[in-house]
Amino acid sequence: MIRTVKRVVAPLLALALVLSACQAKPGERSEGGEITIGIGGQPLLVYLPTTLARELGYYEEAGLTVNLEDLQGGSKALQALQGGSVDVVSGYYDHAIQMAAKDREVRSFVTMLRYPSIVLAVSPKASKPIDSVADLAGANVGVTAPGSSTDFFLKYMLDKEGLAPDAATVQGIGGDAGAVTAMEQGRVDAAVMIDPAFSLLGQRVGEDNVKVLTDTRTAEGVQEDFGVPTYPAAVLYSTGTWLENNEENARKLAGVIVKTLEWIDQHSAEEIADRMPAEYSQGNREVYVESIAKAKDAYSKDGVMQADGAEAVRSVLAQFDKEIAGADIDLAGTYSNDYLPAKEG
């Protein structure tokens, strides 16, 4: 009897081991099946193309089954990628460089935003007078989430003023309704905000009551803060392993985003708002449409990552991040334009 059981169990165990070995590890799922994209704050306009592509039916049209997962901030989305719960992240390019400094291969493969579109503003109920970035020393400053690109931006601005990157106390307040409430009620003295939240705050408390310390929603603002005309921000990125195992899926995703960017360029803010989920306007469609109109110029026209833009991001991060400053980073390994659709002509 025992021998019989062994003869039955042994092959089953062997089969189980083979199947286990064949299972893909997190982030290594290959072509076919569903693709989960983690978004570092889905209602934020900086990530609008990722959701708009779904609303336009472009993922399905490309033969892709895509699930969009809304996460509080870029750092949460990156953690989800590392943990294997998402395949791709709709987040800021900053994180690809951050991971490269840790010898972890994370690569951007389509660029959605050429300006960071971040605003550093003061709460109308700040606990102390704040008239400049230097006055943020000792203040409580809101970011979408600690470790996110809004947090990186704050640290960069503090460093630029000769302050320590941790001169201000950082508090995660999200990027949408939570951020508006935190600023409106004075839970934070200032915040790094992204539209539509920033514009909604101005509408609720009065634009004259919201002091802006710096604004990167325009080319002029980017030039003033970073010294470059464009600064790549929101992208789609994934691990090198996922991209190698999913080359065709990555090409389709990049193609879908480029097609969506072209649609954005060819349509009005009103038409774009019509396609987006109604709840993203947070009950104020007029402000939402105005925010989209202001954001349109920040979107990339072709999805291309420029080499000088990538270098600008690395240089900025290195100013306050010692690990990045001391790392020998091969920037060519942090992004790729190879997945983009071939240009006609």
Rank of each mutant, 00 (worst) to 15 (best):
L243P: 05
A278H: 07
P229Y: 04
W242D: 04
E247P: 03
P277M: 04
S268N: 05
L200M: 11
V210A: 03
E290V: 13
A234D: 08
D225A: 15
A254P: 10
S291I: 04
V205C: 08
V289G: 02
A273I: 00
W242I: 09
G206E: 06
P277W: 03
P196F: 04
L261N: 02
I272M: 04
N284Y: 01
N245V: 08
A293Q: 15
S199I: 13
V205Q: 12
S291C: 07
I264T: 09
D225M: 15
G283N: 04
G206A: 12
D195K: 13
G206K: 03
G255R: 04
E248M: 06
L253W: 05
L201W: 00
E279G: 04
V256E: 07
A254N: 11
E270S: 14
K259W: 02
L253H: 05
K211N: 01
I264Y: 02
E224I: 03
A254T: 10
R275E: 11
L243Y: 01
E248P: 03
K211E: 06
L243F: 07
Y280F: 13
E270T: 12
L200K: 07
V210W: 10
N249E: 05
P232C: 08
T241Q: 14
T239N: 09
L201F: 03
E224V: 01
A273T: 08
L201T: 09
N245T: 10
H267A: 08
L253F: 00
R217F: 01
S291G: 06
D265Q: 15
K252F: 04
L236H: 10
